[in-house]
Simulated assay, not measured.
Amino acid sequence: MDALEIERAVERRRVWLDRQLDVAATALDVSVVGEPVNTFDMRSAGAVARVESSDVWLRVVVEDADYEPVCRWDGNVSANSIRGVAKPAVLRWHDWQHDDEYLRGRRLRGEVMTLALGTTVAPGGVLHDDPRLPDTWWQDLRRSLEALAAHPTEWHHELGAVASTIRSVEHHFGITLAEDVFADVSWTTAHADLHWANLRRPQMCILDWESWRPMFAGYDLATLYCNSLRDPVTARRIRDMPELHTRSGRLALLSAICRYLWIVGEGSDWDLLEPHLRTEAEPILSSMTRRTD
């Protein structure tokens, strides 16, 4: 597929998602009043909507087996059980199956959520300069992540995080990690997709809860750190947090580095992170691994 064909396919998907927002709005009895916003992968779209005299967020997502179980179908809804975290709440939702020719048979979900005020810290996910967030914002973030880490879950190692990290390190660095490297790792509940496009300001709020799950302790700070590497001020602030100086925190950082190396080259802001990510990985790997032939 050449560049023009890709552009046409993306535009067709964008128009289709916009229509699905209208379908969801009708089913959930809200009126779309804002411009639609699409995710980078064109898997979901959202817009400000109005119900009676209140503004809400309307989101529609199309089911895609390639994203499971990383993005769980019920992630946003099940996250309603989490307490003590600054986040939107899903007020109601509606599922349906698409029957027209384009993407026939796909299941879709519309969600009406409380509206997160303010603006996204960095729409592309990656910081390019100091956002000058106040100390109160950082304090709210830490309180939310501590509450999230303590949230009980009924599942463990859901995504095979250990096996995935071992496989990724071998692929990206040619290094073999022994499984016993992870023997003493601590696990906590994590958002697992914490970058700057999922954070709001001036009032701190964490968006996008499709991926929350158990991960290595410190993983959320590790992903946020990776997305801050082009801004030394913010990167240092996160790197100095104690969670990243534990054994679990170092493994969390290694796992996060590998996660972003997989998407380098796809034409997003994450392409700019590659040299920084590799530099960050070197001391972690040199302390615990051996290189393969």
Rank of each mutant, 00 (worst) to 15 (best):
G174Q: 01
G174M: 09
I175L: 15
I175V: 15
T176W: 04
T176H: 11
T176N: 12
T176V: 15
T176F: 14
L177N: 04
L177P: 08
L177S: 10
A178V: 06
A178K: 01
E179W: 08
D180W: 14
D180N: 10
D180I: 08
F182L: 03
A183T: 12
D184E: 14
D184F: 11
D184M: 07
D184Q: 00
V185R: 04
W187R: 09
W187F: 07
T188R: 13
T188G: 09
T188P: 01
T188L: 07
A190H: 10
A190L: 02
H191F: 04
A192N: 14
D193H: 05
D193L: 08
L194S: 14
L194K: 03
H195N: 13
W196D: 07
A197D: 15
A197Y: 05
N198P: 09
N198L: 10
L199F: 05
R200L: 11
R200Q: 08
R201H: 01
P202A: 11
P202W: 08
P202S: 03
P202C: 02
Q203I: 03
Q203K: 13
M204S: 14
C205D: 14
L207C: 13
L207R: 08
D208A: 06
W209L: 04
W209A: 13
E210T: 15
E210M: 15
E210F: 02
S211G: 06
W212P: 02
W212Y: 01
R213L: 10
R213A: 13
R213D: 08
P214M: 02
P214K: 03
M215A: 11
F216N: 10
A217Y: 07
A217K: 11
G218W: 04
G218A: 00
Y219C: 02
L221K: 06
L221I: 02
A222M: 05
A222S: 07
T223Y: 00
T223I: 04
T223F: 01
T223P: 07
